[in-house]
Computed example of a mutant assay.
Amino acid sequence: MKKKRFILLFIVALISCSKGDEKLPAPISGPHDDEVVVETTNILLDSEFTGLTGLPEDQGGQHIAKPVTDLLSPLGHYIYTPSGYDDDNMDYPLIVFLHGGGERGNSFQDANDLEKVLVHGPPFLIESNRWNPRFPCIVASPQISSGSWSPSLVNGFIRHLLRNYRINNTRIYLTGLSMGGRGCWSYVGQNGNDGFATAMVPICGSGDPSQVDNLSKVPVWAFHGAEDDVISAFTQNGSVPMVEAINENDPLFLAKVTIYPNIGHDSWTQTYSNTGRGTESADYSPFDMSIYDWMFQYRKEE
């Protein structure tokens, strides 16, 4: 009977990956089971990095594959925990990375499909031993099998993480590239500061200007290549018009957009690695600090 029940739950998880707006399977309980509550909270600029300066330096942690077949999670994912995570009881900030369309995969059918999420962004930097943000953090890189990122699917995944990891729920950050950038715009556009995201960095994605009221409630720093012929930076609700719409809407914090001249769709490599600093257009927001420091300077009011 138990075996049949587990098989049924795995099938529900797989269906949820394919139909992002379907009801998600209930994640397993964990250390934060009573704390997964989404409330409207103020987002603060915290130049003192409250709660981060006391975390142990990350000497290189664990990056573990969690295919759908291995756990009761809405999504297969890679999860990175910093080196000090197992040695203390402290809560850590969380960065959720949403992959692009080329990294879709079905780890229910083939666990190796999950490795596709390692080709770009934070998971790539972790795997290549180049992950060195100023403060230690948990990094979660989920994978969808088809379609696009839906806000309900992202929300259910973050809830799962909160139930199973020691996460500082005032410091949850969202970033993604291309389709994942669109997923960031969509998640914050639907949820505003009612959702989990404290700040977001969408890269070469497009948004929905009708959601500008919610987008104005969460700090945004968008990146895009000026020569992007897949998702235009300047038209079709690309990064520039989206940021302009936010800043015309009296946002909580002015949104930023950084544009790379002579760069096409891949504007993520130099952004996540911070190697693009100094190569950006002077006509838009300067790439004047690490995107991770920029995210970490925001937190939700406790």
Rank of each mutant, 00 (worst) to 15 (best):
L45E: 11
G51E: 08
V212L: 02
G20T: 09
D208N: 15
F157I: 07
G264M: 06
S239V: 03
H77I: 12
I11Q: 00
I11A: 14
D266P: 10
G192T: 08
F287Y: 15
L24Y: 11
E227N: 14
V220C: 05
L44Y: 02
D46F: 09
V36C: 12
P209A: 11
V36A: 11
M1G: 12
G195R: 08
R163I: 08
F223I: 02
V154I: 15
G205C: 07
E22D: 07
N191K: 13
V38G: 09
Q236K: 13
W185Y: 15
K19D: 04
Q59V: 05
M200L: 10
N129A: 14
S145Y: 09
P25Y: 06
N249Y: 07
E301P: 02
P25D: 00
D213P: 00
G276I: 06
T170N: 15
S18K: 11
N89K: 14
A111P: 09
S107D: 01
L114E: 04
C17W: 00
T175S: 14
P136V: 09
V201K: 01
A226Y: 01
Y85E: 14
D229Y: 05
S47G: 12
G276V: 04
R166K: 14
S273I: 12
N42R: 15
L75M: 13
D113K: 12
C204R: 03
L254M: 13
L174K: 02
K19Y: 12
G105N: 07
C17V: 13
V220S: 01
P123Y: 00
N89C: 09
I291L: 09
P31Y: 05
V38T: 13
D110F: 12
I79G: 03
N112T: 15
G192V: 08
Y165D: 13
G121F: 05
T269E: 10
K4E: 11
S128R: 15
E48G: 13
C137P: 03
G20D: 10
S290M: 01
R171D: 04
D21R: 03
N89V: 00
V68M: 14
S232C: 09
A255T: 05
F253V: 03
C204L: 08
L114G: 03
K23W: 07
L114T: 01
N193M: 08
G192N: 07
L153V: 08
G147N: 10
H99K: 05
I167P: 08
G156N: 04
R130C: 06
S83W: 04
